[in-house]
Amino acid sequence: MTQTAPRTKLTLRAREAIAGWLFVSPITIGFLIFFVGPLIAVVGYSLTEWNLLTRQSTFVGMDNYVDALSQNPDFWHVLKNSLVFAAGLVPLNMALALTLAIALSRPFRGVVIFRTIFFAPVVTAAVAWAIVWSFLLQGESGAVNQMLAVVGIDGPNWLRHPDWAMFAVIVTRVFKTVGLNMILYIAALQSIPRDYEEAARLEGASGWQVFRLITWPLLAPTTLVIMVITVVGSLKVFDHIYLMTGGGPENGTLVLAFYIYEQAFEFFNVGYAAALAVILFVLIVALTITQVILKQRSQPQ
């Protein structure tokens, strides 16, 4: 008895380990093949000059990165576009999401209908949303410009005008995605105990003071999560650009994710496109790490 007891314990543990690895192996193997492998490969590709048309691949070291960062004027233009897109989309999206959430977090007659409406674009295919908005935003006969004409405004050809295309894509993208952030904010608002507000009200705090001193600080963790999701989402935007502007006019909406696609699958510059993908990867990792640091810093309070 005394001899076999430890052995059975060991075999039980071994059995558990085998079961554990068997359970995770399908997803782990697939993940290694279709995610980790490609992630390593893309770094390798980025060190080569590889053109699909000439079918030649030569090792060029950091040339693609040097090319992107110092030779090719397109890269900085594209990066600027991506940052403009993010800088426009993120605050607009979050401000609207919070406003809607505050309006819709407490029950009133019809609140479910309004929540359903603002969330509907989230379940709608991005492609469908982009197509319908392209239809609405046409120059002459588009519904938006006809509505503007009613109040005497002569609207531009939104998606073909260098000054307006980026704005139009950002705003329609906000309409597509704001519902998700709204729902996250509503969940967070509803988890704040009502006593806090009532106590502050009894002390004579105004509605704005309650929001600034109680609600907003308590929403901080949610705000952080939403910010990271939204920033990353804005950096990977592809289908809206592809369908609404094709990166134009005058490359005015050419953003990083679209540029990667274009370089790889339309111009066949595999090495250069891979270097761009690595840069996108680094950008996103940096942002995620920043989030973790910010989160840890905000916790002790």
Binding site: F31, F35, G37, L39, V232, A257, A264, A277, V278, I284
Partner: peptide, 17 residues
């Protein structure tokens, strides 16, 4: 660590795979 990674990053090697 892979949760946030968009498919644009790995699409090129996956194409050749």
């Amino acid at each position: 660590s892979a949760l946030m990674m968009p498919e644009e990053v790995t699409i090129i090697p996956n194409f050749f795979l």
